[in-house]
Design a protein around this nucleic acid. Structure first.
Lengths: 143, 143
DNA sequence: GAACTAAATCGTAATCAGTCCGATTAAAAC
DNA sequence: GTTTTAATCGGACTGATTACGATTTAGTTC
C-alpha cells in the first residue's frame, strides 16, 4: 500500500472529498518522495493541469497538513512539503541530503535528552532536522 | 560590553561601514533581546526613522546574518531574527517561550547523539529549537 | 577639516508568494 | 438521475521582498 493510497484513505475517513485535483496533488507528492517547495508544486501542477488555480493548491496544502498527510518544513525561507513518510509514527525527524534532496527518517528524538535542561519550563514542541550528504551521494562525490 | 557593542565591533573588523541606520537596527534588536519578525522590524524602524527604506533593512538583515551578528529562524512561515546571543559560541540552540517570546540559550547539542545513526552519511548542519512555556510564564499561567 | 571615493541609502517601481471571493462545477449521498 | 454543498475556478488583490538609478555619507587621505 503506497503512501498515496493511505493519504487518500485518510481523506475519505475525515469526510474530505476526494477530487481529481487532490488525487493529482497526492500522486505528484508521492512520486517525488522528497521535500518540494510549495511554489514549485504550484508551478508544476498548473503546467500539467491547465486551469488549476493557485487557490486550490494552497488551500489543499493547508488542509493536508492539518490532516497529517503532509509534512512541512522551511528551506532557505521557502515553505517545502512532502507526503507523510510514516503514518504509524507521525512524530519523527529527517535527514535531508543536500545533494539529491532525498529524505531519510530518523527514529530517535532528541527531546528526551533535553527535558532536564530547562527546569520549570513546559516544552511543548520542537524542530530537529539534519542536513548533509547521504551515504550514496557521499560515495558518488568521493567525500 | 553589550551584545550591540560587540556587533558594531564585528562590523568594523569586517570593513563594513557603521552607518546611522545600522546602529539603529542593532540598537533595536539589542533592546528587544528576543526574536522579532523581519516584517515587524521593517514596520517599526520605518515608523521611527521616516525615510528609511525597505531596501536598507532587508539588505542589512542579510549582511548581518552573513557576518554572524544576527541569528535567524522561522516562525509560522515568517522570517524572524535576533541579535547573536553568544558570540563566544555561535553554535548553540534555543528554547523559545511561546508566551513571552523570550529566548533561552541551550548549551547542549543533539548532534552528538545522532552521528552514529546514519552510517556513511556526512552530516553538515542541523536545526534544533525547543518551544514551550518558560518557567516564569508556566508559573504565571498556572500550568 | 576639506576633498575624495566607494559603499550605503533612498525612493520608487516591480516582482512574487499567497489569499480572497463570487460564480460555477462536481463529489458523494439518496 | 437528482440534490446538496464542498471544492474549484479565475481573476483581482494584498503584503513581503527585491531591483535599480540617483543621491548621500562614512571613512580615508592630505
Amino acid at each position: 500500500m503506497s503512501q498515496a493510497t493511505i493519504a487518500i484513505e485518510k481523506m475519505k475517513q475525515s469526510g474530505m472529498r476526494v477530487t481529481k485535483q487532490r488525487r493529482a496533488l497526492v500522486a505528484y507528492l508521492d512520486e517525488s518522495g522528497r521535500f518540494v517547495p510549495v511554489t514549485q508544486l504550484d508551478r508544476y501542477m498548473r503546467s500539467q493541469y491547465p486551469g488549476l488555480s493557485h487557490d486550490t493548491i494552497y488551500r489543499n496544502v493547508k488542509a493536508f497538513e492539518q490532516l497529517g498527510i503532509l509534512e512541512s518544513d522551511v528551506e532557505n525561507e521557502q515553505a517545502i512539503v512532502k507526503l507523510q513518510c510514516d503514518f504509524q509514527h507521525p512524530h519523527h525527524h529527517h535527514f535531508i541530503c543536500t545533494n539529491c534532496h532525498r529524505v531519510q527518517e530518523v527514529k530517535m528524538c532528541p527531546l528526551e535528552y533535553f527535558e532536564d535542561q530547562l527546569p520549570g519550563a513546559k516544552i511543548a514542541s520542537h524542530n530537529f532536522e539534519l542536513y548533509g550528504l547521504c551515504a550514496a551521494c557521499a560515495q558518488k562525490l568521493g567525500r
